[in-house]
């Protein structure tokens, strides 16, 4: 049977033979749980008893839950502050690091180090930095100068930026490396031509560097957007006693899902939240991929 196939057909058979493993893997590990989660979102289930049909009840509850809207807002705050901030910071660092020769490798290593550190360990260290006197580093410094203490984490306004800061810092190293690779990939001939024409650095930056970095920028935006939309470990570890607090000021959607599922054992409601998160991630990614395609 196999013998009678044309070479083209044989190639297809072999391609599928090799593809079978990842396809199987994705079906079992990704698609089946995803489908199951969507199914559970229409049911009530406390992990122990039987699943019962709930119809759209979980989604209705979500729509009317003030905590969900607060959490929704937080999630987008993480995205809208985190992504542009880390993009600008990492570009500025990469741009200048690229021009620097002195201790270049060492500095690059320093920027990359936080990315390699465990998020949990990092979150706990920052959590202690943020404490009040007598143990908090920042507040000890402030009080050393006679400046009143700042409530970093125990504040409804300061907590979210305080939690976001180490998350941005942690992701910076990776983005700097990607930007530097992007910068190196720009052919030097453009810069030489610009030099001959005698244009200023601003024009070089806006007319040559940034346009040619576009694929890199799109990649970083997509990548870090997904990261900030799914932020969990920094928030959870910096606020473990009062996850997402105070008063839900730092709670992202993933933490709400975790809490509903594994503290409240309300799997149906948690699944409904997951479906919403999935939809948001899908839409954001599609929009960003669209931007990439218009290239």
């Amino acid at each position: 049977m196999y013998r009678n196939l044309t070479i083209r057909q044989k190639q297809i058979v072999w391609a599928w033979a090799f593809l079978a493993l990842p396809v199987l893997f994705y079906t079992v590990i990704r698609f089946y749980p995803t489908g199951n989660a969507i199914l559970i979102s229409f049911q009530n289930w406390n992990l122990l008893g039987a699943r019962t049909w709930a119809g759209l009840e979980n989604y209705e509850k979500l729509w009317n839950d003030p905590v969900f809207w607060k959490v929704f807002q937080n999630t987008f705050l993480y995205l809208l502050i985190g992504t542009p901030l880390s993009l600008v910071l990492s570009f500025v660092i990469a741009y200048h690091l690229d021009k620097l020769r002195f201790m270049h490798g060492f500095l690059r290593m320093l920027y990359f180090l936080p990315f390699m550190t465990s998020a949990v360990a990092m979150a706990w260290v920052w959590r202690w930095f943020y404490q009040d006197v007598p143990i908090g580093l920042f507040n000890n410094i402030l009080s050393g100068f006679g400046i009143p203490q700042i409530s970093f984490l125990n504040s409804t306004t300061n907590a979210l930026p305080a939690v976001l800061a180490p998350a941005v810092w942690a992701g910076l190293g990776f983005q700097v490396i990607i930007f530097m690779a992007g910068l190196r990939a720009i052919p030097t001939s453009y810069y030489e031509a610009a030099k001959i024409d005698g244009v200023g650095w601003w024009t070089v930056l806006t007319q040559i560097t940034l346009p040619l970095l576009r694929p890199t920028i799109v990649f970083i935006v997509v990548f870090s957007s997904i990261g900030f939309l799914r932020i969990f470990d920094h928030v959870f570890n910096m606020t473990t006693n009062n996850p997402g607090g105070p008063l839900n000021a730092t709670k992202p959607l993933v933490l709400m899902i975790y809490d509903t599922a594994f503290n409240g054992f309300n799997m149906g409601y948690a699944a409904a939240q997951t479906v919403v998160l999935f939809t948001i991630l899908l839409i954001v990614s599609l929009i960003q991929l669209r931007l990439l395609r218009s290239e």
Binding site: N154, T156, N242, G245, P246, D259, G264, F265
Partner: peptide, 20 residues
Amino acid sequence: ANESAQRQLMVEMVERIQLQ
């Protein structure tokens, strides 16, 4: 009924007084 959720309500009760 749900100890962690019920504790959370106590936590928030104090936070509303202290922070708001």
